[in-house]
Nucleic acid binder design. Structure first.
Lengths: 278, 278
DNA sequence: ACCTGAACACCGTTCAAGT
DNA sequence: ACCTGAACACCGTTCAAGT
């Protein structure tokens, strides 16, 4: 997965009806495009649609991957055991042979998302050009997976965490260990490594959650110069500054902001670092 | 609402069974302790429990307040139109006279939470001792409401936002306007006010979401020196640094970290500020 | 071994009907 | 005017039964 999500343009997406905000369909890497035919089949459940011919057998991984695809394309709210089964050409009950239940499936989706990062070539398991480079790569890796799955990322952010040493979005022992070990190798003592971990995670969480939530946000009339031009959705006369700065507020500078704030954070972390090893 | 949630002690909470994590019952300010009797009545739905005597009439506000209480005490997952009706001594269908549906109810709960801040005496609508003081008070006000409603705060963080100029957790035109106007009065130009708004919101979102999610996190054996002492829940031998730093990682320094990071942020914002007005 | 039909308890929501 | 009963379509989940 090295599709350059680093382009900050791409423009804000639009989604009219609250709650059904289809984000751009992001069906890369994970195979099984099976899900795609369920799009818009919301009300139309044709009986024997799926040819039961050469269906590969179910498996936990296939189910989890299909669930992620489903969330990416239909949104989290649309994910239902029954619909997921349908997307896989199977009855819902079959899923329970591989997955204990819906909640556990969602946890598995979260795991799958952060596991994606393991295969990101730009992310290092251990620093080789200094800790700043290490953290830069890690941060960008997490950002790439967040932007690849904007509808699923809130799960990563909000699912209850099992242990206090796992902080979203770095919610895997693997990455926490890699983080701590990396900084330790680079001369951080225990306290500063832990401090850096805390600062790093809260930075990532805030930035990325806002970035993906902006992807779903309605952009409002003005930027597109709509045809019908409803005078104003709400009455904004009480909020003159919001009105005046509306364009500025709606501009998407998330990529540069991310870069700048990350730079700042690295500076802050540098000042936490013990000066033992140069 | 000025109950000092500023004490950072209070210790980490415990919650064994995944998904049913009752946080500390936070039934302050908003009246209607009605909800409390629904606790643990999960399976036991006694028929004519509620004395239909002097029930005050339903109203949208009463419903929204009850929903918030319900989430605070039972968790978001437990909130059901039917159960909420029951908590209010009414059938679920009655709610639809006042609230369009469950989704809109959740939006209303989010509104209610951030509206809470309007009545926080420490939060200023307009700066009177400089912008730093203004933002300090605002940040702490938001933190207080987050900590007052840890189970509901993820809603504030994750609900789809209607417009790109509303950034969680400051998702109300009132506060965005107040923020921009405040900084403007203090000599910020448009670009730096907008930049400050962005930096401020992502800082708050990351910190507070992590703080409330830690409240629900299982703390694991070790800190309480449990009686039975199961050897280890998972095998952590592959993660030596996590094990070694486990205590440090589990310590709750959120209050001081918040303070320090906020201080840093204010410094960063100061450097964005135009130097026109001293 | 793997999938399904039928069933259960529970949802959100509508609407005609009660008081 | 305000609430409810009954109903509908849809859930998650279980389990005996099919192949």
């Amino acid at each position: 997965m090295e599709n350059g999500v680093s382009r900050d343009a791409e423009g804000p997406r639009r989604s009219r009806g609250r709650g059904s905000g289809h984000w751009g369909t992001t069906t890369e890497e994970r195979g099984s495009a099976v899900v795609d035919e369920a799009v818009d089949a919301d009300a139309e459940v044709v009986a024997g649609r799926e040819p039961p011919s050469a269906r590969q057998p179910l498996s936990r991984d296939r189910i989890v991957a299909a669930a992620l695809d489903f969330i990416d394309s239909q949104g989290l709210a649309g994910l239902t055991m029954r619909r997921l089964g349908q997307a896989l050409g199977v009855e819902a009950m079959s899923l329970y042979r591989y997955v204990p239940g819906r909640e556990d499936l969602l946890d598995a989706v979260v795991e799958a998302i952060i596991a994606d990062m393991q295969s990101d070539e730009d992310v290092l398991r251990t620093p080789d050009h200094g800790w700043q480079d290490f953290l830069q790569r890690l941060a960008h890796g997490v950002r790439r997976v967040a932007l690849a799955h904007p509808a699923a990322f809130p799960l990563v952010a909000s699912r209850p965490v099992e242990a206090p040493w796992l902080r979203p979005p770095l919610r895997s022992l693997e990455w926490v260990e890699a983080f701590l070990a990396g900084l330790h190798d680079e001369g951080f003592d225990d306290a500063s490594a832990v401090g850096a971990y805390r600062a790093f995670t809260s930075f990532l969480l805030g930035h990325l959650l806002l970035e993906v939530s902006a992807l779903g946000a309605d952009v409002g009339p003005l930027d597109v110069l709509e045809e019908d031009a409803e005078p104003e959705r709400d009455d904004l006369t009480e909020y003159p500054l919001v009105v005046r700065l509306r364009a500025a507020l709606s501009e998407d500078h998330s990529a540069v902001e991310f870069e700048e704030a990350l730079e700042e954070l690295l500076g802050r972390i540098a000042s936490m670092r013990s000066a033992k090893t140069p």
